[in-house]
Design a protein around this nucleic acid. Structure first.
Lengths: 161, 161
DNA sequence: GTTGAATTGACAGTATGCTGTCAAAACGGT
DNA sequence: ACCGTTTTGACAGCATACTGTCAATTCAAC
């Protein structure tokens, strides 16, 4: 009896979870697409915007590998983006007194100005999206995603052992 | 007074929404990574699995463009995946009596067998992930994501006009 | 029937992120 | 001081998904 009830509950949550997967895929795609369009006038993309933001918000200049950990991406991905931002003159790579190879990523003056411009675009955009949405529901959704991610990564770790 | 209260509410939901964005990015990445590992033993990837599943679940064989609309992806992305699945012998492209160029994508015998194998892997995987998660919370999260995606795409449409 | 719009597949190019691998550099225990 | 481990950057290769463009085909309006 108990197992039957358990199965029923589990079946429902499994079905709901499978549906959630699709919504996550779609929301992610829509988010990246919208972000790309938002910062396109500044000559940026969604990914570069995120890296620039991480660099700007950091308390002190950090090497690439540290930024990557902050963002949950691989070093290699961030390295490429940082190199491109450096080519575009938005960030500068300064010598690191504690590590000869690991240069510190800093915003250039141009990068600072761009970051300010981004904020002026981002603020009304997010406000518009959030208008009429319930804070509690948004936070509850975020909690579910974090729980899901935690379980997913736990599963990955177990397989990796 | 009212505008002040409104601003305050809006500010909070904007902040919550910005945080949700990051959780969506992370959850999406974790989901793809976990999916890749899950179906790797079958020689598949997360993306090919999704295409194969869409083909398998369709009531009748569909051309590539129709599958793409189903999945919310572009024709070109799905076309490449279908071609690769065809190369691997998992799907077959049959002549379409109603359209000379738009072949119908069908599962081959090997594709059928693979789909069954996928189910045997997927079912306990999803059940394990869903275990102990609340159905109502999952569905509420999915609703928030759908609302967000709807607003994002509405914004894209407005810009495209 | 003809013409114009929409659909479809094909090809090229770009952006993002991953893994794998290597060598240089820093760190830690002995 | 030494040696093994970890961190870091660099390079190569692959998978995914996007846009843009073109021609073939279908479909609808006239």
């Amino acid at each position: 009896m108990l197992s039957k009830r358990y199965d029923a509950v589990n079946m429902n949550s499994s079905t709901a979870l499978s549906a959630l997967f699709l919504d996550i895929f779609r929301a992610n795609a829509a988010l990246v697409a919208a972000g790309d369009q938002l910062v396109a006038p500044l000559g940026l993309t969604s990914a570069r915007w995120q890296v620039l933001g991480t660099v700007a918000m950091a308390n002190s200049p950090q090497p690439v590998a540290h930024i990557a950990r902050d963002m949950g991406l691989t070093r290699q991905s961030v390295q490429r983006l940082v190199n491109e931002l450096a080519d575009a003159g938005l960030v500068e790579l300064r010598d690191n007194p504690h590590h000869r190879r690991a240069k510190l990523v800093c915003l250039s003056d141009k990068g600072q100005a761009t970051f300010v411009s981004i904020h002026k675009l981002q603020r009304p955009w997010v406000d518009g999206l959030a208008e009429g949405m319930d804070v509690a529901r948004i936070e509850a959704a975020a909690e579910v995603l974090r729980a899901l991610r935690s379980r997913l990564e736990q599963g990955l770790d177990e397989r990796a052992e």
